[in-house]
Design a protein around this nucleic acid. Structure first.
Lengths: 161, 161
DNA sequence: AAATTTGTGGACAATAGAGTCCGTTGTCTG
DNA sequence: CAGACAACGGACTCTATTGTCCACAAATTT
């Protein structure tokens, strides 16, 4: 995929759903799967890992399901990524040189290292609650734009892709 | 792997070898494989793609092999990456949201886009000749350090790892 | 207690990337 | 022409990821 595995992307989407649509209540995995479009059996496996790592609590039986184990404010995207993918995206040489490390760096090593750190910071800075709020705000904005018919497509620079 | 596939990393190492150790002469893939530690059959497949994309020229028979198709000065790391992996690492949403694009971006989209562009620029700025020169200079420097016994490990900032 | 709901866990299948094997084709040398 | 050299190309294996299926265990309701 991109920089994250499919499983990790699903984990983020599922936890985001919990923050946005459950008010701290337990939600069955089957419901999250249906609402997010992720396959139930696969999401089930991912959720199990999130429970193991202490990011989710689970309860069986009627009225059960899963919910955030901590306040959404204290859970960052990096927490989720670390739980599912680990942090290897933050290590190693961009070009795979076996001999390349901080003591004998390849020529792009310092650039790469700085970029990796920026990525880490980007993920570490976003808590689930902030992220969910930003998404819902964005949704509302799009809604307004659709109503007024104003298209924001024309933008300066022409670099848009 | 990291951001690049194994095949792509091998392609870069192979072309770097050609620039550093062949003076525009053809080198058999078997030799490149032996010198770089890459498996011959696999490298063979990769080299074929590089020939197809016009980055390498190939010649069969005794005295044959492959060589750079253009001056090393005009071949960038991005050229090689585009030939083997394509440029998908430069597109798409970091979190895999299907609905996320430049018109309806997810909250980390602008950060992500800027980081991707920095990565692109980093790879596009390095030509094979510059890269090879920087590596050989680094090698010599290490050589000198080993002789004098001076360890460069102590560095200001203490962030070193 | 029985039935229903829900997570748990393991076995399995499908896919893609990584890596191997080998026969074929073209080219050079003697 | 014969033989060696080396790229070409396809078929194959191995492995990790992705995704599916099903039996089971716990909790809740009646």
């Amino acid at each position: 995929m991109g920089i994250l595995s499919a499983a990790c992307e699903y984990a983020i989407r599922a936890m985001l759903y919990l923050e946005a649509h459950a008010g701290g209540e337990s939600v069955p995995v089957a419901v999250i799967a249906r609402e997010t479009g992720i396959s139930h059996p696969f999401l089930s496996k991912i959720v199990r890992q999130l429970v193991e790592r202490g990011l989710l609590d689970s309860a069986r039986g009627p009225g059960g399901g899963v919910r955030l184990a901590r306040p959404a404010r204290s859970i960052t995207l990096l927490d989720i990524i670390a739980a599912i993918d680990g942090l290897h995206f933050a290590t190693g040489c961009a070009l795979g040189f076996p001999e390349c490390d901080d003591d004998a760096p390849c020529p792009i090593h310092p650039y790469w290292r700085s970029l990796r750190e920026q990525v880490m910071r980007m993920f570490a800075k976003k808590s689930l609650s902030v992220f969910a709020r930003e998404i819902s705000a964005k949704m509302k904005k799009l809604e307004r734009q659709r109503k007024t018919g104003a298209s924001p497509k024309a933008r300066k620079g022409g670099r848009g892709q």
